[in-house]
Amino acid sequence: MQFLLKLSRAIDSLNRWCGRTVMWLVLIVVLISSSNAISRKFFDMSSNAWLEAQWYLFGALFLLTGGYTFLRNEHVRVDVLAARLSERKQIVIEIVGVLLFMLPACLAIMVLSWPVFMDSYVTHELSSNSGGLIRWPAKLIIPVGFALISLQGVSHLIKCIGFLRGLCPNPNKKLLDKSPEELLAEDIARQAQAKFEQQQKG
């Protein structure tokens, strides 16, 4: 079990790194999107390549952060009934859900999307739009994204079993680390409080 928990931590680290790295695609997408809009509006210029790059990155942003979102327990859960049960029963339901629904669905998508990617890669498939990009990188994102989600499902499964055996905390609890926005808000509040206290002393 200790080996499996180490494997779980390694998977968590992979998805944590991937998620935090891919987040920077938000900035790149915003820059590309705004540049396209400005060039089209003010210079009457447009590029299918940049427009498709924007779509590719947008797809990567969602698919490659699926495992990270699962790690942080940020996916939508319909737990109106499960919330009334004990933690152990909730974990049992979680194990059943991962084994019977999540992993089979993710593996099926991986298996079905891989030949589509390979066909695109072997034939050097290009976009049908004039000046468009090659297609295989966008199609590769699908199996890779679902592979990351599947790995995180395995990690979650290990942690669920570990919780039932008393070896780790409840994996259904959301991570308590704060977002950059929350940390910034707290810092601003501390500075305002310190300034107020200085004014009171003065």
Rank of each mutant, 00 (worst) to 15 (best):
Y121L: 12
L31G: 06
I32M: 09
G166C: 05
L57P: 04
K139T: 09
S155N: 05
Q2E: 14
K139A: 09
M23N: 13
C18L: 15
W24C: 04
I134K: 09
F43C: 07
A192G: 11
W24K: 01
L140S: 10
L27M: 14
K159I: 06
S39H: 03
F43N: 06
S33N: 12
E74A: 14
Y56Q: 13
L151T: 01
K6G: 01
F42L: 11
A192K: 15
C168F: 02
C18D: 02
L64R: 08
L176G: 04
G67K: 05
W17M: 13
N73D: 08
G132L: 10
P169M: 04
I149H: 01
I28T: 06
Q193H: 05
W24A: 10
A37I: 15
W114T: 06
Q199V: 04
A37H: 06
F117P: 01
R84A: 10
G97M: 05
D12C: 08
V116W: 09
P115M: 14
G19V: 07
D177M: 07
Q198P: 00
R165V: 01
G132C: 09
F196W: 10
A37P: 02
S13D: 14
A37W: 10
L5F: 13
V30I: 15
E197Q: 15
G66F: 05
A192L: 15
L5E: 08
F3Q: 10
Q191I: 08
L81T: 02
H124T: 01
E125K: 14
I109N: 03
E87C: 00
N170F: 11
I142K: 00
G153A: 10
F43D: 06
V22S: 04
V76H: 03
L107I: 10
L14A: 03
M118Y: 15
I93T: 00
G66Q: 03
M110R: 02
L103R: 08
N73W: 07
L14W: 05
P143M: 04
L27K: 00
C160V: 08
Q90R: 14
K6Q: 09
L4G: 01
R190L: 14
P171Q: 02
I134Y: 13
A105T: 12
L25G: 11
N172F: 11
I149R: 00
S113R: 04
Q198E: 15
A108G: 13
F42D: 02
Q2F: 13
Q198N: 07
